[in-house]
Computed example of a mutant assay.
Amino acid sequence: MNARQENIVKYFHTHRTVKNNTLAEEFNVSLETIRRDLMYLEKQNIIIRMHGGAYLNREFVHETDYLYRANLNSVKKKVIAEKAIHFVKENEVIGLDVSTTNTQIAIELTQHFKNLTILTNSIVIAIELAKRSSFQLILPGGSVRNEELCFVGESSAEFFKQFHMDVFFMSFSGVSLESGFTDYGFGESQLKKAMFKQANRIYGVGDSSKFSIHSLLNVAPLMGVEGIITDDALEESTRHDFEVCGVNIF
């Protein structure tokens, strides 16, 4: 599965049913390319094609929503996590929004630190930290999005506004010079924005396949972060374009 097909799957996990034309515009490719991608994804039992579009195979929705993404680019996510811990100090307050990349960062933190306070809306991250460390954990409560295994909504966003964070690792569905950081999920984007405002230092965290991708919702401007932590597969031309615009790439 190539990077575009991985991002198409993420799009389906949010939108469930999508027209071919919408996908072609979203990913800036031809309809023929989209049809080939969908044929491949149908063979993998991820989606079911219909006239003019496709929909997510419901037999696999609950199994694949989180677990499928956890296995996507797993090596790259570990590279990102190993880089991220260098921006953390003992006794700091760390914000981790819901993402499989941040889950890997959480695991990495337990192997290098003893005393941290972690704020997160991710149930998976909380479970990982609870079974691996003595970190202080703070979760917002509220409505749970079952597919993402996280707390979402206005009440959860309001909850985070009372806390100060030293570092916030912000995941994203897409990042581009034109749109900044973007995401697909409205509930998740609310939480990201709230945590963004409460942090001293913010790092975008995402693998190289998410660069030059425009997702549905604007989350944060590029200039609002210390930099973006990504894997080593990012094309040098893309790295150069971001760095010329003043965005640090780690």
Score class of each variant (00 low, 15 high):
180 G>S: 07
144 V>L: 15
167 V>Y: 00
170 M>R: 02
172 F>G: 01
151 F>S: 02
173 S>N: 10
171 S>K: 06
138 I>R: 02
190 Q>V: 10
117 T>D: 07
160 F>D: 00
160 F>T: 05
127 I>Q: 07
121 N>E: 14
143 S>G: 13
129 L>M: 11
188 E>V: 06
178 E>D: 12
154 E>T: 13
117 T>N: 07
179 S>A: 11
124 V>I: 15
185 G>Y: 06
119 L>Y: 11
151 F>I: 05
146 N>D: 15
189 S>D: 08
161 K>Y: 08
181 F>K: 00
160 F>I: 12
126 A>W: 07
147 E>D: 14
146 N>C: 15
127 I>K: 07
136 Q>F: 12
176 S>C: 11
175 V>H: 02
168 F>C: 07
134 S>W: 15
135 F>G: 02
132 R>D: 14
126 A>I: 13
143 S>H: 14
184 Y>E: 08
118 I>E: 00
180 G>L: 00
116 L>H: 01
143 S>Y: 14
160 F>L: 09
169 F>N: 02
116 L>T: 02
155 S>L: 12
173 S>D: 05
167 V>I: 09
149 L>T: 12
133 S>V: 06
132 R>F: 15
174 G>N: 04
189 S>E: 07
181 F>A: 01
173 S>C: 12
183 D>K: 04
159 F>T: 03
150 C>A: 15
133 S>H: 05
148 E>W: 03
173 S>I: 07
173 S>M: 08
120 T>F: 11
166 D>I: 15
123 I>H: 14
152 V>A: 05
188 E>C: 04
176 S>T: 06
141 G>P: 14
190 Q>R: 05
135 F>P: 00
171 S>M: 09
177 L>E: 06
144 V>F: 10
138 I>D: 04
134 S>H: 11
174 G>F: 00
123 I>Q: 12
118 I>S: 01
136 Q>S: 12
128 E>R: 13
176 S>R: 04
158 E>C: 12
147 E>G: 07
181 F>Q: 00
171 S>C: 09
141 G>K: 08
126 A>L: 15
163 F>I: 13
140 P>S: 10
115 N>Q: 06
157 A>N: 06
153 G>H: 09
190 Q>T: 06
122 S>I: 10
115 N>R: 08
150 C>H: 09
130 A>D: 08
134 S>D: 08
118 I>K: 01
179 S>I: 10
118 I>T: 03
187 G>F: 03
150 C>G: 13
137 L>W: 03
119 L>I: 15
157 A>Y: 03
151 F>D: 00
137 L>N: 04
142 G>K: 05
183 D>P: 01
163 F>Q: 03
172 F>I: 05
187 G>R: 04
153 G>R: 09
147 E>W: 06
153 G>K: 10
162 Q>H: 05
129 L>H: 04
169 F>G: 03
190 Q>N: 09
153 G>S: 13
156 S>Q: 10
134 S>M: 15
130 A>I: 15
122 S>D: 08
190 Q>E: 14
